[in-house]
Amino acid sequence: MPLLILRRLGNTVPTIVAVVLVIFTLFSVIPGSFTSAGDDGRVLDAQVAERMRKELGLDDPLHVRFGSYVANLVQGDLGTSFRTREPVTKVIAQRLWPSLKLTIAAMGFAILVGVPLGFIAALRPGSLIDMASMVVAISGLSLPKFWLGLMLMYLFALTLGWLPSFGYGDGGLRHLILPAVALGVSPMALLARTTRAGVLDVLNADFVRTARSKGMSEYRVVRWHVVRNALVLVLTTIGLQFGSLMGQAVVVEKLFSWPGLGSLLVDSVFQRDIPTVQGSILVIVLFFLAINTLVDIAYVIIDPRIRYG
């Protein structure tokens, strides 16, 4: 098994190279690049532009620039922010922890609420609790995050005054709850639905009938034979949702003034701070890759049928 995991890790290397290549190329070919106008419409002085192009090596051939980009990357150098003149690595590092915290909290909420909800719904199909949970699931999927965030803010912060309405505060739990819920509701809803479908699927499987033929109670059938199999089906959804959550957080981070990578990305886009944009995207994509690698490793551990060939 350790060998399998190693091989799976090895498989991500080409993907990472491809990601770096795409991000680099994207910013080298899009129009309105490094030295063009800011959003105020002013054009850089020709001399200044010339100096910048030299400084950044923009006139070198593409492959040379890619080479130096990768060489810097390997040394942990993502370039210098146009805006703050700080290393992008440092800018991102400040945002990474709040971003991770928000993503993990949102996913935790989604799993802890969505999976049990789907389970209960599947075990009592057609019941009141089934219908109620599916109403929650469908509305959770269709409500825009922005609106939902506003409603949460209005209710729990402004009306009830239980929680702070925005900001990172001291980094404690109280500031985390509302944005995490706003971000977690849609993966929660999706998880409730996939869990329900997965459990129903497993309950119809032949081996569940075998389990019943052995004379075990329905509780044991579920504990011994359904849970793990259903989890295997849900794990993919968990991975995909978790992985993309950091990118999905943009709106919620802006709304709650949360100092994460999402809001850094948006701000940098508006400020034409291309090294920071590049860096943020790279980190968000790498997070996605990391989560999916972890999920694949989890599969190797819980599903003996999986062998990477």
């Binding site: 499987a205 032949d206 081996f207 009938r209 075998t210 389990a211 033929s213 011994w224 034979h225 793990r228 199999n229 295997v232 819980i302 599903d303 003996p304 049928r305």
Partner: peptide, 12 residues
Amino acid sequence: FQEPMTALNPLS
């Protein structure tokens, strides 16, 4: 049962 391929729990 008829189907030995699916009658056993694959994860156990």
